[in-house]
Write a protein that binds this DNA or RNA. Structure first.
Lengths: 152, 152
DNA sequence: GCTAAAATGATATGTTGTAACATATCGCCA
DNA sequence: TGGCGATATGTTACAACATATCATTTTAGC
């Protein structure tokens, strides 16, 4: 696990490279999400930041900041859970395949893995046959992680 | 497209076969969802039933009824959209594969198709390798349907 | 018909997210 | 360097989705 500072530094360089600004608030929100090491709802993230940094950010601001971070591909929104998670690949520079998110129902830990091209091609073929076209090529699956599964 | 009555009749037989009751309210909610031919939120379903049957069902009841219908596998909840849709296979009796839902972002039309076992096995293998275990083997994908795609 | 269980109703509230408008901050260039 | 437009953040109100809790009605079985 890399340090938060390293990740933030990468994120800042990434933003600067095309004229976007990773302001202090935005850094704080992103740091919170990285530190939490799991998926948080916007309101959980507010509480986490309040506790961790002692500063209360209004809900509206958090939503706006999350939107910015999503556009910068530093954060992903998990629509299944209505939660947000830091991108697992902020410090890599390579282009990514279709992301697949495994969300633990119990502890909200998230694993971000990649679907192989062949599997994705099969899915896409199914979809086109049904007369639909894929818009958001992101898969989210309800799972239980190993540690939660063995704990119970 | 089969008639609603036929589908409801199947649903009723299915419930009776193991002692569950498809009450008039439950029939009404299921009928509404079938008639609408698309995914509806609980509140949209309330409005639809009010308009179609002239009877207003409280939100709480609709949620309870939807929960019952889900347990009976007559209705699916689409977590991506926070909407509910009638199962496309109420009148078939065969066991079903993993359902895959294609949701049109624009008109909320839903196509329920099946993932082939081989594709699903590939996904499951990825998941187990990441130390997670699949809980809800249902895939939901954000799509756009053919008619919405050509309309614009 | 009586009773326990199941279903439904009513009310309040929790949770997620956005609209609309006000204020503050930043970056540029005259 | 100071003012102006653009960007970012704050504030308030509210919409949409969902559940908790307790009251009432309906049903099935004796």
């Amino acid at each position: 696990m890399q340090s938060v500072d390293t990740i933030i530094e990468h994120a800042e360089r990434h933003c600067k490279s095309h004229g976007a600004r990773l302001t202090p608030k935005r850094k704080q929100v992103l740091s919170g999400l990285i530190l939490s090491e799991k998926a948080l709802s916007a309101y959980e993230l507010i509480d986490f930041c309040k506790e961790k940094f002692g500063e209360s950010i209004p809900a509206m601001s958090v939503y706006r900041i999350l939107e910015f971070l999503e556009e910068e591909r530093l954060v992903h929104k998990l629509n299944l859970a209505n939660k947000y998670v830091a991108c697992a690949h902020i410090t890599c520079s390579h282009a990514h395949e279709v992301p697949q998110f495994l969300i633990c129902n119990q502890c909200n830990k998230v694993e971000e893995i990649n679907i192989s091209k062949s599997t994705m091609d099969e899915l896409k073929e199914n979809i086109e046959q049904a007369g639909f076209h894929l818009v958001s090529p992101q898969l989210e699956m309800n799972c239980i992680c190993h540690s939660c599964a063995t704990r119970n």
